[in-house]
């Protein structure tokens, strides 16, 4: 069962998630070693694959570096749940098919180390220790489509392919 890591502060920025001194690589496994380094040096030692970060509002503000998403994903983080996200982090998450879920009161509902259950179809996260369940804002359909395609680039490539090869009906009319 995933463990929740609570980073309660608002405005946790991408410089804290992955400091610029590590930006000379874009290899996920390499970046993963430094995830959250300037916020909590020991995080990478505690985190296990599939764990969840619960954070304050405006998570991921600042620099546009997609390295922030890669570092977290590389470290094993399955989802970040926060009241809201800074916009570039949010779109980077969508483009990578990484879960950034918007949920009010999430910081108040979890304590660091709580076990959690994430139900993506039902749109809920449950604190298994307390039994409390929260509903998160549904993931937009577009984001789901991108995720299904495997990411934004795959989605685009698919679109291009469809444009090049007319659909069966179009061929009939041609």
């Amino acid at each position: 069962m995933p463990t929740v890591h609570v980073f309660a502060r608002d405005h946790i920025n991408t410089d804290e998630i992955i400091p610029a001194r590590h930006l000379t690589t874009d290899v996920e496994a390499e970046l993963a070693k430094y995830a959250m380094e300037d916020y909590d040096k020991n995080f990478v030692r505690r985190v296990k694959p599939g764990d969840i970060i619960v954070a304050g509002a405006d998570f991921g503000c600042g620099s546009s570096r997609e390295h922030a998403v890669w570092a977290l994903r590389g470290a094993g983080v399955a989802a970040v749940i926060a009241p809201n996200f800074a916009r570039i982090f949010y779109r980077n998450a969508i483009n990578n098919g990484f879960l950034a879920l918007e949920c009010e009161n999430v910081v108040e509902t979890f304590m660091d180390g709580d076990p959690a259950e994430l139900d993506l179809t039902g749109g809920t996260i449950t604190n298994v220790r307390t039994g409390q369940t929260l509903q998160f804002v549904p993931v937009p359909q577009f984001a789901l489509d991108v995720q299904k395609a495997g990411g934004w680039l795959e989605y685009m490539r698919e679109q291009d392919r469809q444009q090049r090869e007319p659909s069966p009906q179009e061929e009939q009319h041609a």
Partner: peptide
């Protein structure tokens, strides 16, 4: 692929920063 791309907006254009995947898509298509 830089958050301060908004800088150019002073010229009355729509300029915005994106991540590397978006950048890749823009370069490609």
């Amino acid at each position: 692929g830089d958050s301060h791309t908004c800088n150019a907006g002073a010229l009355g254009c729509f300029a915005t920063g994106v991540g590397s995947t978006d950048l890749a898509g823009a370069i490609y298509a």
